[in-house]
């Protein structure tokens, strides 16, 4: 097995006396679809912010995309993409303006921005919609564009933070087709979701409880090891054991 694209040892984040993330160990491979599950308040967001280089860990070690999480956060930020359902594209910018804006944010040169944005428009077949406001597009298209924009700078890892929340059942499934295609191209997909059926679509997943990783493995193995009928049961069993509140 090659070197993991994300590797952490005893990664910890404290806020005062509160241990938000408590010594987590992760090894995630290139091209893997990794589901990052947990109840609200379990520490998922804090862990994810650390892995994106946005929050400095208190202790432990970690490498993301080949860079050290303590000393090379800028290099990490250039190697990752991020998308969430809550915030992805600017509704009051056109499709092409959104693409150029994000390309700029991700630090592409103006020449790269020109070529990348026309490539993207062609690939998604959006020639007629390039100058339309994002607001006017159907949700499924927005999702597709947002996902492609998050990969504009050829990242090695894409963090998908509840990418399908509130999305209709058909579009939600089409979105997972895109996740599979990107993973098959070798891009690592790090996904959070509250849909337990989607947990089944991940190659591997972890479930966080009280800042720790309470279970990790292939969906089938996690289910059978806990004698659970469904992922929903697994989640309920583990999360009900939580001792800390959601404060």
């Amino acid at each position: 097995m090659s070197e993991p694209i994300i590797s952490t040892r005893a990664l910890t984040k404290r806020f005062g006396d509160f241990v938000a993330v408590d010594a987590i160990d992760l090894d995630i491979q290139r091209g893997e679809i990794f589901g990052f599950l947990g109840a609200n308040g379990a520490g998922k967001t804090t862990a994810m912010r650390m892995l994106c280089g946005l929050l400095r860990p208190t202790s432990g070690t970690a490498r993301v995309a080949g860079f050290d999480l303590f000393t090379q956060t800028e290099a990490i930020k250039r190697s990752i993409g991020y998308m969430s359902q809550k915030f992805s594209l600017y509704d009051d910018l056109t499709v092409i303006e959104n693409i150029r804006f994000y390309a700029g944010i991700y630090g592409l040169t103006s020449q790269q921005i020109r070529s990348k944005s026309s490539q993207l428009i062609d690939r998604l077949g959006l020639q007629h919609e390039a100058n339309a406001l994002v607001r006017s597009l159907p949700l499924g298209w927005k999702q597709k564009i947002a996902f492609s924009v998050a990969m504009l700078h050829d990242p090695q890892i894409v963090f998908l933070d509840e990418p399908t929340g509130g999305v209709d059942p058909v579009t939600r499934r089409q979105f997972w087709d895109m996740i599979y295609a990107a993973a098959a191209d070798g891009i690592t997909m790090f996904v959070t979701t509250h849909y337990m059926d989607e947990a089944e679509y991940c190659h591997r997943l972890s479930i966080m409880v009280d800042g720790r990783i309470a279970a990790m493995g292939r969906p089938y193995d996690v289910r059978t090891s806990l004698n659970a009928r469904s992922m929903d049961d697994v989640f309920t069993m583990l999360a009900r054991g939580a001792t800390r509140g959601q404060d």
Binding site: N40, K86, M196, T236
Partner: peptide, 13 residues
Amino acid sequence: DEPTTGVDPVSRK
């Protein structure tokens, strides 16, 4: 209006 959006499965129950 969407009281459970973004809420984990246990809290939703």
